[in-house]
Design a binder for these strands. Structure first.
Lengths: 345, 345
DNA sequence: GTGAAAGCGCTAACAA
DNA sequence: TTGTTAGCGCTTTCAC
């Protein structure tokens, strides 16, 4: 409890005085109490409670060099994408795992290049123990900034191009290529022969990898590809475009569920039945989207929240070991995907 | 630049040595350089640049008792509402204003009552200079927790019930009652006589105040009220319900734009023309919604981003003056609304 | 097992 | 104008 008039909080010293012990002993008790005899420890805990003592964070950080805080860096376009359940789920995973490690999530919201300086200063200033960043766009400078700050960092999604110093940065990503491959193979297995692809923005590695998986599965027989923007509307537009150019399509693999749902709408508007006339597969398996459509989407599931948690664990690994020089190169993780069969394919 | 092998960052001391001055002088230069002769200051700045010196935040906080960080507390249900452009805009305003005050936004995401302890500890631990919180639900314990932490705080939206110690907490809110009043008066001025209201969730003060404004404007002549949940779907449902019960409605005031757009859809489905048969007014003036409908919505505008910025300024006021005992009771601000006329009424 | 003492890196009086 | 000197509140050897 802070003194109501001065706002001053009790210090370790005050607790020590009250409990009749030294500051060191109080410190030990506050930090777990190892090596302090029970009766003494109890007396200290009592004093702590009576005084409403709460350790001063800055003082602790000053000596331990640990902050108990991790920055999550989200650039404007992605932040807007919070309406895409994808990001919300990933951040939720991060938030939960961080809480388990007694770390605070500090959200850094980057609105534009103007903010880069501020971010660099913040990261460099030792406010946080590490950083988690999402790198979606190829031409994004953020990854470079983060890497240069020398703060341990883990990326969500394979970074496009850490220009200049492209020493490996650890990242967590799902197996985009493999997932896409499986989705398309599933369509092939269904006897479909004219399989189109609605791709995401091709400056994002996830979209690129999914196109690769699609092409790989089809080999020379790969069909038309239209580019969308991972949104419902863009999926609808891409679908319309594909149908105009190739009215005889019998299957579509969309690079995410949002675009698949847009595509679905257009297919029905054109009087095409799903899956009878055109089979449709999405990606992500975001429940609120994939299960809500009619028919529900067959889609490639990735464990989004799990990937968020994994980012935190990787970071904690680096923090745990690496005092100074990191020996083992930081390792990235590519998580598996699974095909979830519903009614659309 | 941290030492690449030890990870150690240069200290003030190192800079002082290199520049051949005292630590105090370096400190002065780093903090604005007032009262240091130019040549000396330049030498210091040079040393700072050469060494890549960045001040240690913890050390600075320890002595200044300022963190340069403000917590923004968002509870789960509201966070999900990021898909509602409303929240995004308000947080953006906060983020920008905070940046202007060289403060960091620390996002605290509360998922449930389990997190209350963690939040209380965080707030109590002196990690942040102040807190901004959104209090939407009447039965939310968050306001009480924030108030008890003794950290200066400003709320977004009039808090429902700070139970127990309900000494005034400062908040920023738009004039919900007045805005609603004006909207309804506008409908009356249009000659409408059977004016219904689609309310928001009645455990939120904003929704309550808007109902009040509606009733006040209509006096004894107030029409039917259906309750929604500030979402498009709930607006559609409420509209359907109202039309079933009162097919002769000639106007509707919806408590936000999202619900108005849902209502609009139902009106058209039932073959009613807007505004000819039924005039429609919304609330908030979220551009992506109000301007996108057909016809575009007449609505009550509030400066959402501005309110976010205002929250920060109020907080900074409190932080600036109040070293210890706050004298003047913290003041709340109710911002004006304006009616924006478009085609729907 | 417990206490004494030495800092962590910085700012802010106070002297010079 | 510049330097000297105390701490800020905490952890952590190191003696006891």
């Amino acid at each position: 409890m802070p003194d109501p008039t001065t706002g001053a909080r009790p210090t370790l010293e005050a607790v020590a005085a009250r409990a009749g012990v030294s500051r060191a002993t109080v410190s030990r008790v506050v930090n777990g109490g190892a090596g302090v005899r029970a009766p003494l420890a109890d007396r200290v805990r009592e004093a702590v409670a009576e005084l409403g003592y709460v350790p001063n964070h800055a003082a602790r950080t000053l000596v331990t060099r640990r902050n108990g805080a991790v920055a999550v860096i989200i650039a404007e376009p992605e932040f807007r994408i919070f309406s895409d359940p994808f990001f919300e789920r990933q951040v939720r995973g991060i938030s939960r795992e961080l809480a388990m490690h007694d770390s605070q999530l500090v959200l850094l919201w980057v609105e534009g290049a103007d903010d880069h300086d501020r971010i660099a200063r913040y990261l460099g200033g030792g406010h946080v123990d590490g950083a988690l960043a999402f790198s979606l766009h190829d031409d994004d400078e953020l990854p470079a900034i983060v890497v240069e700050s020398c703060v341990p960092a883990v990326f969500g999604g394979r970074p496009g191009g850490i220009r200049g110093r492209d020493r490996a940065v650890p990242y967590v990503d799902c197996d985009n290529r493999g997932g896409a491959h499986e989705a398309v193979c599933h369509l092939v297995g269904l006897g479909r022969t004219r399989i189109a692809h609605i791709a995401g923005p091709l400056d994002q590695t996830s979209a690129l990898d999914r196109v690769d998986g699609y092409r790989e599965a089809l080999g020379g027989a790969a069909g038309p590809v239209a580019q969308g923007a991972f949104t419902v509307e863009s999926g609808a537009r891409a679908m319309a475009e594909l149908l105009d150019r190739h009215p005889d399509l019998d299957a579509v693999f969309a690079a995410n569920d949002l675009m698949a749902s847009g595509a679905l709408r257009v297919l029905r508007e054109r009087g095409l039945r799903v899956p009878e006339d055109v089979a449709l597969v999405g990606f992500d398996d975001v429940a609120s989207v994939a299960e809500a459509t009619d028919p529900p989407l067959t889609t490639v599931r990735q464990d989004i929240e799990g990937n968020g948690r994994l980012m935190v664990r990787l970071l904690m690994d680096v923090l745990g070991e690496g005092n100074g020089a990191r020996d083992g190169a930081p390792h990235s993780v590519v998580t598996p995907t699974t095909l979830v069969r519903r009614a659309s394919a």
